[in-house]
């Protein structure tokens, strides 16, 4: 209790973090309550009103099919947040398990897992995505697979290094001397010591994932139309950028807000939790 209070107090005194927190809350609220926030059906066509500018009726104007951009942006936040949370938690989970195994397990396992991490990390994301799309076709799942496969090795490597450093410490040797098994040592003694910094990295990874998803959808290898994704909104507006720039502007705005929000929040979290920067507590 006290701890949460202290955390909020600290966050309040990190103006950037506080600002980031507000932006992140906005994005998450909009994703949660999207159906109640939209003013129109996000897929309803209104050919008569196509490419209309912002007005009281359409706050962010309409696109080339006359769909309400505001409603599409709001619904798009669902995709963005969902993809971000799913991929980051999957990467984190896979990275944790494999990284701890590599860091604490036998040498051959470490060598094998490292090879896997480095191989996957060397895949160029876009090429990898295009290759998968030719095999499985464009879909949200493809996006998730691509992002998870290219980001979990980063977590894996990080976890491995931290596990190795902890594995040599006396409290781990003490557990081994008492006869504790690998599961117990990893789960109870190593995990709590490495999870904190990992969450901070994850929160800073969310904006990266959001932009990758938008990028893939923009290229047409991600979310299938007519599902609104921020990337596909940008793609829709791209052709009309000269005459009706608001589609691009309003489609890009949420991307910037999300990216900034999570980055500010992540950096403040790091400042708050990094024991080297922390003065007391």
């Amino acid at each position: 209790m006290n701890w949460t209070k202290q955390f909020l107090f600290r966050l309040y005194h990190e103006p950037m973090g506080f600002f980031g927190m507000i932006l992140v809350t906005l994005v998450i609220l909009s994703a949660l309550f999207a159906p109640f926030l939209t003013t129109h059906d996000h897929n309803a066509l209104d050919i008569a009103n196509r490419l209309a500018g912002p007005s009281a009726e359409h706050w962010m104007g309409t696109d080339q099919l006359g769909r309400d951009v505001f409603s599409r942006v709001v619904m798009g936040s669902r995709i963005a947040v969902w993809v971000a949370l799913v991929t980051v938690s999957m990467s984190l989970g896979i990275g944790l398990v494999l990284g701890m195994m590599a860091g604490y397990g036998p040498k051959w396992l470490d060598a094998g897992l490292l090879l896997l991490f480095d191989t996957l990390r060397s895949f160029p994301t876009i090429m990898f995505a295009l290759a998968l799309v030719t095999v499985f076709g464009p879909s949200l799942q493809t996006v998730i697979i691509v992002i998870v496969a290219t980001t979990f090795p980063v977590y894996g490597r990080m976890v491995r290094t931290q596990t190795q450093a902890l594995g040599n410490q006396e409290f781990i040797v003490a557990e081994e001397a008492m006869g504790a098994g690998m599961g117990r040592i990893l789960g109870i003694h190593i995990l709590p010591n490495i999870i904190g910094p990992l969450f901070i990295v994850a929160s800073m990874d969310i904006p990266v994932v959001v932009t990758i998803e938008a990028g893939l959808s923009f290229l047409g290898v991600g979310v299938r139309p007519p599902t609104p994704s921020w990337g596909s909104i940008l793609n829709d507006g791209y052709a009309y950028i000269r005459n009706t720039p608001w589609i691009i502007i309003f489609g890009g705005l949420p991307l910037i807000v999300t990216t900034l929000g999570f980055t500010f929040l992540g950096e403040s979290l790091r400042d708050i939790f990094d024991p080297k920067l922390r003065r007391d507590l």
């Binding site: 410490q169 003490a174 557990e175 001397a177 117990r184």
Partner: peptide, 27 residues
């Protein structure tokens, strides 16, 4: 039983003393 060189370093830092003392029984 083994007692370690580093008094604090041989105690798991994220556990309370109570849980640290319960470890041998659990294991």
């Amino acid at each position: 039983a083994l007692m370690f060189q580093d008094p604090a370093g041989s105690l798991s830092p994220r556990l309370k003393i109570r849980s640290i003392l319960a470890e041998p029984f659990r294991i």
